[in-house]
């Protein structure tokens, strides 16, 4: 063998490395990619199966749905950086706004494309405490008392955790005679009690349940139900505060991506099916509050306690405003940590 054949080997290998990326696309089955956040895995596992069956019955076409789960913000960032999502189903509107703002892949008015602000299911923020509720935690103000160990994720790194923070703020500002300053003091006292600020919601639940840290976990209602069932109905119980926030996890078609793959129709039908009787039942079964409870199983719906819920629009105006005031660098959240 001569030197010349040796010469091109490394270049050929490098070229192979770069070309590896262009394969893939042309399968016969259409594949939808749903980019979602962590706690929706069980929901979409069930929903995807139902949708595939429904679509086949309706059109005779067999499709596939693949999932990607992660922190809501990092999932949005992946889509911004080019992840080929057909639909996004995230934890908060701010993350979908970010995709719309930074790319032209989602129209700016995405929220009005589907009913109910494009949130087919909702949830709220509740508390998970140890069995018997030894500290007798009943409402938000119990969380700010000295000596209570609170677990909640970091709202700066976890989108879901911003709902937790905003729920606490909303409670404080709705108290008689409350002002901005009193709300800030309350939230500050609450976060002073936080023992571990995990980077994501699931990390917080693990810390609270598996590691036995803290007295109360601030959690999405669906997460609290799930943790109760999966990790210890005999060790934990749910406490519902007097008032909380209506968490509206939104969904949207990433139109540019779906169109490029020739499946905008499929993507739209997929999201619309979330509003159907079957979609709503599956959401309720997985502890998300259905927008249309009459369509879901009565038993599932009965599990959701009644409480006063406020929306982000009522208290904060919009996600953009809430984000700017509270979570941007130098915002209220940084300030309460003395930054």
């Amino acid at each position: 063998m001569s030197l010349s054949s040796f010469k091109f080997l490394p270049f050929a290998l490098s070229a192979a490395l770069l070309l590896g990326g262009c394969g893939g696309e042309g399968g016969s089955t259409r594949t939808l990619l749903n980019v979602s956040y962590d706690p929706t895995r069980e929901l979409y596992q069930e929903f995807n199966e139902a949708f595939v069956k429904h679509w086949e019955a309706e059109t005779g076409e067999r499709v596939q749905v693949t999932q990607s789960h992660g922190g809501s913000g990092s999932q949005a960032r992946s889509v911004i950086d080019g992840l080929q999502a057909d639909v996004v189903t995230l934890a908060l509107a701010y993350d979908i706004d970010a995709i719309a703002e930074r790319t032209s892949k989602i129209p700016a008015d995405w929220e009005s494309k589907l009913p109910d602000n494009s949130s087919p299911y909702t949830s709220t923020i509740v508390f998970l405490v140890r069995k018997g509720n030894p500290l007798n935690i009943q409402d938000w103000d119990d969380l700010a008392k000295p000596g209570v160990g609170v677990i909640t994720p970091n709202p700066k790194s976890s989108g879901g955790a911003r709902w937790n923070y905003l729920a606490a703020w909303g409670y404080a500002i709705k108290q008689p005679g409350a002002t901005e300053a009193s709300a800030r003091d309350f939230v500050q006292a609450l976060y002073k009690n936080v023992l571990v600020l995990d980077s994501g919601a699931r990390g917080s639940t693990t810390t609270f349940v598996q590691r036995g840290i803290g007295d109360v976990l601030i959690s999405w209602e669906n997460e609290a139900f799930l943790a109760l069932n999966e990790l210890g109905p005999d060790q934990l119980e749910i406490v519902v505060p007097s008032v909380s926030i209506l968490a509206e996890p939104p969904v949207a078609v990433v139109e540019a991506n779906a169109e490029a793959k020739g499946q905008a129709d499929l993507a739209r039908a997929y999201l619309e099916y979330l509003y159907s009787a079957e979609g709503q039942s599956i959401a309720a079964k997985n502890y998300y509050r259905p927008r249309h409870p009459e369509l879901a199983g009565a038993e599932d719906v009965a599990r959701f306690p009644q409480l006063e819920l406020f929306t982000i629009r009522e208290v904060f105006g919009s996600w953009g405003e809430a984000q700017r005031t509270h979570f941007d660098d130098g915002g209220v959240f940084d300030q309460i940590y003395g930054l």
């Binding site: 990326g21 893939g24 992946s78 080019g82």
Partner: peptide, 24 residues
């Protein structure tokens, strides 16, 4: 480098190459 807003992102997208969020 290779993200949709990166140096080569637009070129890659136009030519149908995928680097990040794929094997490469």
């Amino acid at each position: 480098l290779f993200g949709a807003n990166g140096w080569f992102g637009v070129w890659l997208a136009e030519h149908g190459f995928r680097i990040i969020f794929a094997l490469p």
